[in-house]
Measured scan of single mutants.
Amino acid sequence: GQVHVGDTTYHFPNPEEARKFAEKAAKENNLQVTQHGNTFKVE
């Protein structure tokens, strides 16, 4: 799974890890998570 936060892309071998990371980043920054397959975008 990939997580895009601003201009930075994080790669995770496990989509579940990617999702947890995205949700945590979104919560900390008052942002939203959008999911496209195994790619998550925090914005």
Rank of each mutant, 00 (worst) to 15 (best):
V3G: 00
E17P: 00
F12C: 06
E16F: 07
Q35S: 06
K27S: 09
K24V: 08
K41F: 15
G37Q: 04
G37W: 02
Q32R: 13
H36G: 03
T9S: 06
T8N: 11
E17R: 04
H4S: 10
N30V: 03
V33Y: 08
A22Q: 00
R19Y: 06
H4L: 14
P15H: 10
Q35P: 03
Q32V: 14
Q32P: 06
T9H: 08
A22W: 01
E16D: 11
L31S: 10
P13G: 09
V5C: 14
D7R: 13
T8E: 13
Y10H: 07
L31I: 04
Q32Y: 10
E16K: 06
T39S: 13
V5D: 04
T9F: 12
T9N: 05
F40N: 05
E16Q: 09
H4M: 14
A26E: 02
D7H: 13
G37F: 04
R19H: 05
V5L: 14
G37E: 06
N30K: 09
K27P: 00
P13H: 08
N29P: 03
E17D: 12
A18Y: 00
P13A: 13
Q2L: 14
V33G: 01
H11N: 10
V5N: 03
E17T: 09
L31G: 13
E16V: 09
T34Y: 10
P13I: 10
D7I: 08
G6H: 09
H36F: 12
K24F: 11
T8W: 12
A26D: 01
Y10Q: 03
G1I: 11
F12H: 01
N38Q: 04
P13K: 11
V33K: 01
D7G: 14
E16R: 06
G37H: 04
F12D: 01
N14S: 14
E28Q: 12
N30D: 10
H36Y: 13
K27F: 11
T34M: 06
P13V: 10
K41G: 06
F40L: 05
V3P: 00
R19V: 03
T34D: 04
A18R: 00
F21V: 01
N38K: 04
E17W: 07
F21N: 01
F21C: 06
G1S: 14
F21Y: 06
E23D: 09
T8S: 11
G37A: 04
E23W: 08
A25Y: 15
E28D: 12
H11Q: 08
F40V: 09
E16P: 03
N29Q: 12
F12L: 01
T9I: 15
E43A: 12
V33L: 07
K41M: 14
L31R: 05
Q35K: 09
A25R: 09
V33H: 02
T39L: 13
Q35V: 10
V42I: 08
Y10V: 05
V3F: 02
G6N: 09
E43Q: 11
E17Q: 10
L31V: 07
D7S: 12
Y10F: 11
G6L: 08
D7A: 10
H4G: 04
F21S: 01
P15W: 14
Q2T: 15
T39K: 07
V3K: 00
A22Y: 01
T8F: 14
P13D: 14
Q35C: 07
T9R: 08
Q2P: 00
D7F: 09
A18I: 00
T9L: 12
E23A: 06
F21G: 02
Q2M: 14
K27D: 06
N30P: 01
V33Q: 02
T39F: 10
K27I: 10
V42D: 04
T9M: 12
